[in-house]
């Protein structure tokens, strides 16, 4: 496997993960600081199934997804009933919980030393295919009634409920969906690295996913994808500066956030209508400019 392929695999795994974060934060307005723990759940489940039971690649990936979804339902059921701030707290607690479970259960997960001996199967086309499928799924989800329910829950939960949206079920669906996506990414990561350790999935990592989503544009799927690709590549390019790279990386993001807080892309979305508009054809009543005016976050 060439160096470039490794870099691209990393980049597109991140793209998959941030699609999940986009669903949660961008569309539904939930801040999860435990998303990395779902990646960990998926990665460990896939890794354990593969090393212990010699399960084939696809089955292991599926096991990872299922494990993440099940865990998300268990975590989400009580915590999504709480206030949004409390939900964020619960995800922090979940992140700590998963980390210590992985550290303690030495017999199953290898403890702090890590899980070793996972076969190296993931190739670039696997990841690209998974990323494409995820993006398509998320796009369709956004346009169908569940996606609209999510956006309305974010903008005004009470108003959404008045109009018959079950806010709790909507949040539960989106939480499970995001967890499934993270689990898939985790499985791919496990089969790419061949080795997993608990400190790869701490709360700072979840915070980094959030920052990536905000960088591209919280309310734009295109922005999230391109922003993630840009930041992940930036991280690789800064490898030349060795230890200073995290410092430079954070500084660049901070400058962007201060001067363009809505993200590089704002609410802009790549679409066929936009392409048509670019060539100067379709400016008419049929072209609806999409955009969320109200950012949906009230000052408490």
């Amino acid at each position: 496997m060439s160096f470039l392929e490794g870099v691209l695999i990393n980049v597109f795994i991140l793209v998959i993960i941030t699609q999940g974060v986009y669903l949660l934060t961008g569309m539904t307005g939930l801040f999860s600081l435990g998303q990395a723990a779902f990646v960990a759940t998926g990665a460990y489940a896939a890794g354990i199934v593969a090393t212990r039971y010699q399960a084939p690649f696809l089955l292991s990936l599926a096991a990872g997804v299922v494990a993440s979804v099940v865990v998300s339902l268990v975590v989400g059921y009580p915590s999504l009933k709480l206030r949004r701030v409390h939900f964020s707290l619960a995800t922090i607690a979940f992140g700590y919980g998963i980390e210590s479970i992985l550290n303690v259960s030495t017999g199953i997960t290898g403890g702090a030393i890590g899980l070793i001996g996972i076969p190296n199967i993931t190739r670039l086309w696997h990841v690209l295919l998974a990323a494409f499928l995820t993006i398509a799924l998320v796009r369709n989800f956004k346009l169908c009634r569940y996606g609209r329910a999510c956006v309305s829950t974010r903008t005004d939960e009470v108003a959404a409920q008045v109009y018959g949206v079950n806010a709790f079920v909507t949040k539960e669906i989106v939480f499970a969906f995001a967890a499934g996506i993270s689990g898939l990414a985790g499985g791919l990561l496990a089969f790419y690295l061949g080795y997993l350790s608990p400190d790869m999935f701490g709360i700072p990592i979840s915070a980094e996913y959030l920052i990536m989503v905000f960088f591209g544009g919280l309310y734009s799927q295109t922005g999230v994808i391109l922003g993630t690709i840009f930041l992940a590549l930036l991280m690789e390019m800064l490898r030349a500066t060795a230890e200073l790279r995290m410092v430079l990386y954070c500084t660049i993001i901070l400058i962007f956030i201060i001067f363009r807080p809505t993200g590089v892309f704002g609410t802009w979305e790549f679409s066929r209508a936009w392409l048509a508009g670019l060539s100067g054809r379709a400016f008419g009543p049929g072209v609806v400019k999409e955009g969320v005016k109200d950012n949906g976050f009230k000052q408490a």
Partner: peptide, 16 residues
Amino acid sequence: QSSVFFFIASLTVFNL
């Protein structure tokens, strides 16, 4: 701007 953007900015300061 809405306060969520400060949330992200503060998270970045924390990381920085």
